[in-house]
Design a protein around this nucleic acid. Sequence first.
DNA 1: GTGGTCTAGACCACG
DNA 2: GTGGTCTAGACCACC
Lengths: 131, 131, 131, 131
Amino acid sequence: MLLKIDMTSKTPIYVQLRNEIVMGIGKGEIKIGESLPTVRQLSQDLGVNTMTVNKTYSILKEEGFIEIDRRHGAKISPKSNKNNDYTNKIESELLLLLTQVNLKGYNKVEILEICKNIIENLNINEIEVKV
Amino acid sequence: MLLKIDMTSKTPIYVQLRNEIVMGIGKGEIKIGESLPTVRQLSQDLGVNTMTVNKTYSILKEEGFIEIDRRHGAKISPKSNKNNDYTNKIESELLLLLTQVNLKGYNKVEILEICKNIIENLNINEIEVKV
Amino acid sequence: MLLKIDMTSKTPIYVQLRNEIVMGIGKGEIKIGESLPTVRQLSQDLGVNTMTVNKTYSILKEEGFIEIDRRHGAKISPKSNKNNDYTNKIESELLLLLTQVNLKGYNKVEILEICKNIIENLNINEIEVKV
Amino acid sequence: MLLKIDMTSKTPIYVQLRNEIVMGIGKGEIKIGESLPTVRQLSQDLGVNTMTVNKTYSILKEEGFIEIDRRHGAKISPKSNKNNDYTNKIESELLLLLTQVNLKGYNKVEILEICKNIIENLNINEIEVKV
DNA sequence: GTGGTCTAGACCACG
DNA sequence: GTGGTCTAGACCACC
């Protein structure tokens, strides 16, 4: 999995890193049960502070994407509970996003098409097999 | 249009306000050509500084959602240009979001259903009529 | 001469109007010695305040582009003195503008080409004949 | 780089500052990759508010002249994308400016000479080497 | 340390 | 009347 960070982005580094890892899991580049690099390793590779990577891992753990095993570091979590709070939050973000697409001049059919295209390419099978 | 701000949120006030107004336009609560409250009025109503509201309006103007008419203040913009940069940005956010939904255990059909529900309730007709 | 005003522009109306008239003179759409509309007439046509048009005319007079004759209104001035102060001001604006073009990635040849194209289309002959 | 602000000018401080910095980059007084002073430092040196400098930096960032690196502050951007919207805007300003020079009594040859002089002294080579 | 956000006032340009 | 600019402080998020 290749992790790219833009130091000049407005988005905090720890958020970028979190997003990249989530995308990596989604794409199947890193599989359930596999380990993430150690905090020290990753921070060195990226040239960022260890605190930054640490914060990223804490968030991923909090969100249920990874589990932190004291002995073996951070592993991709096999659980994928449908968490209502979390899902609601994402749905409201989705609403905001699609509203903007709407206001930018796309009609319902076009917006649905955009969504379909994205959904088609989601790496869902791999995950379902594991679960 | 009811604008609610969470003072304890981590999200900056001016961003919350921007999002609320975009949603308000999307829902048709405020229509194209209508005026937004004056900076002073809104800042007083919300109990925030005028510069905060000012910044919100500047962003909305920059994004093309409103226009500032020197004579009559801020109005909802009738323009809805499909801007490629902007659309690409939103699409990548959409990808991230749907990946998360995916990882939370929803399959393709379910995710598509979520999108469909949201799209159904978008207030597109009203907007098209106005344009 | 067609004068177009954008009420939602960041540029003040009286400046837009001043610029449009200068361009009109430059293009030869209105010739030396001819009259501009009265303040009242123009303000009514454009749907702007008479003070606004008044301010535009004052500036044009100040800059030497028009002369205001109490009996016959505003006429395009036949004089075109090379005023050092004014020219210096324009040159520094020119420097700023060309510097930006430069920083946007155009080289000397390209920038010169841009200038040449614009200069070619200036309506200089008409003016020189009049003088 | 020496930055001079005219407190009595009609031009907003943040615009003056923006122009001065663009000129500084153009002249090669500050080179690509180098850092601008911190917001606090510069605001103190100039005797203006931090928010004023902040606004200047935001605009320069928006225009692509600088990048804000979370770790090291504001740096001169190596990018120099030819942006069509931006270029068109500058070209119409150029047309207005050259029309004024024209109306002030300069003929085509003289105007071209003025442009040539300015272009000659643009610090283009330095920039191209750096890129 | 950095930039980002925010406040409670104020004054100005514009129309 | 409107939005735009500015100040002198403050606190926060990030690294």
